[in-house]
């Protein structure tokens, strides 16, 4: 039901290539911070302010949003920018992929992964706890690393970036043993 490796890999490669030819390398995890900033700024509208002394014209009381001349602060102030809309569009892409999947019964998706059901049973709370914790660790880690699977591993290794190779090795060095131990039958 999924594309074979050659067709899928070629399509994936062309998507990454198209992005770097037309705009810039694909990256995702930064936009989680931007959405956090947008939410934060709607609660406390002094989080991001106009600041003529920064390169971008925006600044923040938060050191992360304020870094690189207020680059993230500007994106929070103007969320209708390329990178943020790109990531939102990925959700639409996932929806369309599912619609045009073909063989799958329309409208129904197996909510509990088979591998999870075999290991933890069919209760949904365990899956919810695991995915929330997983998401928390993944994004905290991605921000420390300065990128995720898309930005570091795919875009990075495409450009023969040292950080991309080392990121990929670090990720798989932990991910493979973790999956082997946690999802042991």
């Amino acid at each position: 039901m999924y594309w074979d490796w050659l067709k899928g890999g070629s399509a994936l490669g062309i998507a990454f290539l198209l992005a770097v030819i037309l705009v810039k390398p694909i990256g995702v995890s930064t936009q989680f911070v931007i959405l956090d900033g947008v939410i934060g700024n709607s609660i406390n509208d002094t989080l991001v302010v106009k600041d003529e002394n920064t390169k971008t014209g925006y600044g923040s009381s938060n050191a992360y949003l304020n870094k690189s001349g207020g680059k993230y602060a500007k994106s929070v102030a103007k969320p209708l920018n390329y990178s943020f809309v790109f990531v939102l569009s990925m959700i639409l892409g996932g929806f369309l992929g599912r619609v045009f999947q073909g063989t799958a019964p329309a409208g129904k998706i197996k909510q509990l992964p088979e591998i999870h059901r075999r290991r933890f049973g069919s209760g949904y709370m365990a899956r919810a706890a695991i995915t929330f914790t997983g998401g928390f660790i993944v994004l905290w880690g991605a921000r420390l690393a300065g990128g995720c699977t898309s930005g570091h591993m795919m875009s990075g290794m495409m450009q023969t970036s040292i950080s991309g190779y080392i990121f990929a090795l670090s990720t798989f060095a932990v991910a493979v043993p973790t999956a082997l131990i946690l999802y042991k039958k």
Binding site: G97, G135, G141, A173, L182
Partner: peptide
């Protein structure tokens, strides 16, 4: 941080089966 962040991402990726982009998809 690329090394340690990558390791943490690997941990969360393995337990949940999602990474930032594929989670959104």
């Amino acid at each position: 941080g690329v090394i340690f962040g990558g390791m943490l991402l690997g941990l969360g990726w393995a337990i949940s089966g999602f990474c930032p982009g594929t989670g959104l998809v």
